[in-house]
Design a protein around this nucleic acid. Structure first.
Length: 429
RNA sequence: GGAGAGGUGGCCGAGUGGUUGAAGGCGCUGCUCUCGAAAAGCAGUAUGCGGGAAACCGUAUCGUGGGUUCAAAUCCCACCCUCUCCGCCA
């Protein structure tokens, strides 16, 4: 939720930026409702003040007091109605994009800001990951379809070992302060804490209210509601949903920041609206595993933390030696709570295109404001926390990239050097 | 699923109708003392909203919503959440 002050300071800009992100919000109406709410607040407070004065002085019922009480009931109701509408309208306003977020109409307008790595050259026609997987019996979607339907898979054999190797690799890197120092140094970022990540296995389900406060429940048809109606639970679509919300209604000490978590979780998405898209292989599944970074920082640390997260993502891709490019996502593509969004896409040689493997989301105070996650500074002022969320590594799509980039003529797949020690020294599968 | 207990400030914890926005303790901040630190003493220390240049003022908030009352943390109703025990269970 945006700070109303931002709207008051420059309503026209808020209106324009909202529209550029693809959200139609009636700012005039919002301000109108806000003024009405304040007017009714004054009426209510004035009546209450009179009422308080009377009950302080007198010790028994009086005609005046009774009349005030009736007026107060009406004033309270009137205020509540206006206040409800005000909050509802304010919630509809998306977070304002940072200054360097590109303009655009769709994801086609995302800007490539960096390319890294040498695209592999093959002296044979490179195969797709599903062709190679079939050869090894690594992926069984047909039987999964019988059991759970489309967009599910049995991942089998060496691919499972590869996944756990990736997980081990990332866990070790992000919990190691020396590694983080190295990443900071290479990135050239200043004033970043090298504080290691705390690994977490977060809840996979989330309450409706918390989901809404994260502003990630919508679009609802992308989510899975679970249990019966009274269960009030959803399956999360990213570890972000249950990590970012963990300090709901809490006050953190500024000196403890940044607080960094590395969550490992199986996530679920209905993939509504993507019928027929990415149906081959394991690119777009209803269920996928993900290592996710989440952090809570002061306002001052927020942006640099976001850039640090991207640096970590790049480091991991470089260590795995997967060619990639970095996209600065344009306004309509960064998401409602986002002030900035970066995607990293891995090169897929067989398909001659890039595949999104990472996202980095910078939310400023937008989520924390609704979650009531606050920070107490040394000077005793409380402010809303700044949240950052980013993919550390999505094993599924990363394995797709490894299979396709590391494939050999006979269909075997080399193991990236950094993963070999987690594969019992094996150099190929 | 059955039975019970409970939700109060950064934390712990008093408080069953009106000097309680809230005792006391811890923590934190400042000052005194000290070469310095510790200890001790004194003082301060919640948040939202609205108004104000500011000092400050008003108002709300003791899980949430509603009710009773001139007056509610305190009484009544509904709901939410947490915990404990039993049962079941990976």
């Amino acid at each position: 939720m945006l700070n109303i002050q931002v709207v008051l300071d420059d309503p026209e800009k808020v209106k324009q930026e909202s529209e550029k992100k693809g959200y139609k919000v009636d700012i005039e109406k919002l301000l109108e409702v806000y003024q009405l709410r304040n007017k009714r607040l004054h009426v209510r407070e004035d009546l209450k003040r009179k009422s308080n004065e009377i009950s302080k002085k007198s010790k028994g019922p009086s005609e005046e007091a009774k009349k005030l009480k009736e007026e107060l009931a009406i004033a309270r109701q009137a205020f509540r109605e206006a206040d409800d509408e005000y909050i509802q309208r304010l919630k509809e306003v998306p977070n304002m994009p940072a200054d360097d977020v590109p303009e655009g109409n769709s994801e086609a307008d995302n800007v490539v800001v960096k390319e890294w790595g040498n695209k592999p050259k093959f002296d044979f026609a490179p195969k797709t990951h599903w062709e190679i997987a079939e050869q090894h019996d690594w992926i069984d979607k047909e039987r999964a379809a019988k059991v759970a339907g489309t967009r599910f898979a049995y991942i089998k054999g060496d691919l499972v070992r590869l996944q756990f190797a990736l997980v081990q690799f990332v866990l070790e890197a992000l919990t190691n302060e020396e590694t983080l120092k190295k990443i900071i140094q290479n990135s050239g970022l200043k004033n970043v804490s090298p504080k290691p990540f705390i690994p977490v296995l977060p809840p996979a389900m989330i309450r409706t209210e918390v989901f809404k406060n994260m502003d990630r429940l919508e679009p609802q048809d992308e989510r899975y509601k679970v249990g019966s109606e009274e269960d009030d639970l959803w399956l999360q679509g990213s570890a972000e949903h249950t990590l970012g919300s963990m300090y709901t209604n809490e006050i953190l000490s500024a000196e403890d920041l940044p607080i960094r978590y590395l969550g490992y979780l199986t996530s679920f998405r209905r993939e509504a609206g993507s019928y027929g898209k990415d149906t081959e292989g394991i690119i777009r599944m209803h269920q996928f595993d993900k290592l996710e970074m989440e952090s809570f920082t002061t306002p001052e640390q927020g942006l640099i933390e976001h850039l640090f997260f991207v640096a970590i993502q790049e480091y991991l891709m470089q260590q795995l030696n997967i060619p990639y490019h970095v996209l600065n996502k344009c306004k309509p593509d960064i998401g409602k709570p986002n002030a900035r969004g970066i995607d990293i896409e891995a090169w897929l040689p067989s398909q001659n295109k890039y595949l999104e493997t990472h996202t980095a989301d910078y939310m400023t105070y937008y989520q924390a404001r609704r979650l009531h996650t606050r920070i107490k500074n040394k000077d005793e002022h409380t402010v809303f926390a700044y949240t950052n969320d980013a993919t550390a590594l999505a094993p599924g799509r990363t394995m797709v990239a490894i299979i396709e980039n590391y494939q050999q003529a006979d269909g075997s797949v080399e193991i990236p050097e950094v993963l070999q020690k987690y594969m019992g020294g094996q150099t190929e599968i």
